[in-house]
Write a protein that binds this DNA or RNA. Sequence first.
DNA 1: TGAACATATGAATAGATATTCATATATTCA
DNA 2: TGAATATATGAATATCTATTCATATGTTCA
Lengths: 116, 116
Amino acid sequence: MGSDICECNAVHQDVIEFARANMPEDETLYDLAELFKVFGDTTRVKILCALFESEMCVCDISLLLNMTQSSISHQLRVLKNAKLVKNRKEGKSVYYSLNDDHIKHIFEQGLDHVKE
Amino acid sequence: MGSDICECNAVHQDVIEFARANMPEDETLYDLAELFKVFGDTTRVKILCALFESEMCVCDISLLLNMTQSSISHQLRVLKNAKLVKNRKEGKSVYYSLNDDHIKHIFEQGLDHVKE
DNA sequence: TGAACATATGAATAGATATTCATATATTCA
DNA sequence: TGAATATATGAATATCTATTCATATGTTCA
């Protein structure tokens, strides 16, 4: 490992070293990928979009997206583990809402790219 | 289908309708999820990070990330299909570079969230 | 032209994941 | 307390995907 793969490597040694020096830590990049992975599912994207408007309880989201309560509940857990949503309990219902302002910005940047 | 899931639905009817009216088109949200899915892999995140610094050829990226040329090549194809990178040919080498300014912004927003 | 180099790609495999189904937990109210 | 409601969750399954391996394509240079 660490040995050259092709002749370019010698020529581009400085470029490679510079990139290596400026890359964030592996753990940071792993966390970043994990975050985007959470965004990378249609159901979760829709849930987050719904929550842009206002907090909602699980069964409301289920009706809105026309999906089973169970699948929504599973996905809300993923979103909560990623600290993208928070929840509060009121009676029998659990209301979910966005946990972070970055989310909307990330979405908007993504939409800019998609709409091109 | 379309029928209520729980009693909340009637109470929250206006909230649900408002959210439904303000959600982007299904196709847009699908494309958005597809975009984030591309970001949601450590290898691809690392490749994009490397390309923030400068264009690089395939074997340089392979050496930098200590991964096989084949796997990098496969992932570059995914990135190119998503229009996140472009490439130019020079002799035997193919140089890849970023295709879009949004990418860096999306990354930075993501990093802000991760670093909290 | 032939050999070495650089990249691309199809098939196969192992691992990850979204949904479904059944059921558990927790709350309200008669 | 018991029934109905709202949510959470474990197991199973089907689908997707990242990497590996083998090999094809394309370029340079002697």
